[in-house]
Design a protein around this nucleic acid. Structure first.
Lengths: 161, 161
DNA sequence: CTCGATTACATCGTATACGATATAAAAGGA
DNA sequence: TCCTTTTATATCGTATACGATGTAATCGAG
């Protein structure tokens, strides 16, 4: 007769025999804590630029494609306007971008980098965190793709529920 | 002569030939966005229990080992007292745990689950997010361990910097 | 034992995330 | 055209994270 102890929401079958869910077996917790660790690893680098992590990825997305709307930027960053708007306003005050209503559709706001925003690209971003990851370049790439696929699966599952 | 365009802080050498850093090549961004995705996947499950994600992992850590101090709990969750204290106070108000000063060392606060807190274990946690991850159990485990190692490397690198 | 250093926790200010809701523009059907 | 619905963004309230700082208890050199 199996134990009456329930499985957690994220255990593999290998865990079901033990007393309870163990934090160290949770993929969600690995991701959660790795995200915290990345934030701490990035902080000393980014604060030389005076940017937070979220501000930084917003700028990177604009380097990749300038002149995006808030909505399209949000799709790429997996963020919505309630989170993005305050961040973009801050970056506008800092002088890195401009926010202007699209004259063709006044509901939309188009974000464009200033010269200053483009210049950030040449400022101090040549450092490399690959080595801090402790992974070989091919492992790094594999992990990156694996986690991205995981993310996309979770988004799909959440949408379907 | 190589391009004058700088590499980002997290690009692999394979990216150095292109115009600039691409968000989709960042491992940190995969982790960041997967963490957001997990939060969204968990939300409908956890809100039936009336818990947030961070409250949930705190409870899980206490199932694993009850009677921990704030500091030892924080080590396991990678959080410090400034984040943990308000969360534990909330859980105390909700009736899931008690916070009491250690009589032997009045600086420390010992956290112990109430019966109610232990009962949460039998309540609704039998759902399984492994399938939402879209990974086979062995892949799941491999990814979990890989990301945990990545996290530990990043923590070590951040401490040494 | 004494007093400055350290430790453990808490408080405060700032910056995300995000659900719920507001607002204004655009779309679209009668 | 008029009015309802939808869309794009913004605002607000709540819950994390975290650096800086505060505070009380303990430690430890002399």
């Amino acid at each position: 007769m199996p134990s009456t102890k329930p499985k957690s929401i994220e255990q593999t079958s290998a865990d079901s025999a033990q007393a309870g869910p163990k934090l160290s077996d949770f993929l969600c917790f690995s991701i959660y804590s790795a995200n915290l660790a990345y934030g701490r690893a990035y902080k000393p680098i980014l604060e030389k630029l005076g940017l937070t992590y979220t501000q930084y990825i917003a700028i990177v997305a604009l380097w990749e494609e300038d002149g995006q709307t808030v909505g399209s930027l949000g799709e790429k960053l997996f963020l919505e306007s309630n989170t993005l708007t305050p961040i973009l306003k801050k970056l506008e005050v800092m002088g890195y971008l401009r926010r202007q209503r699209d004259p063709g559709d006044e509901r939309q706001v188009v974000i464009s980098l200033t010269d200053e925003g483009r210049r950030l690209r040449e400022k101090g971003l040549t450092m490399n965190l690959v080595k801090a990851s402790g992974l070989e370049p091919d492992e790094f790439k594999k992990m990156q793709q694996g986690v991205a696929t995981l993310r996309d699966n979770l988004i799909k599952a959440a949408r379907e529920s």
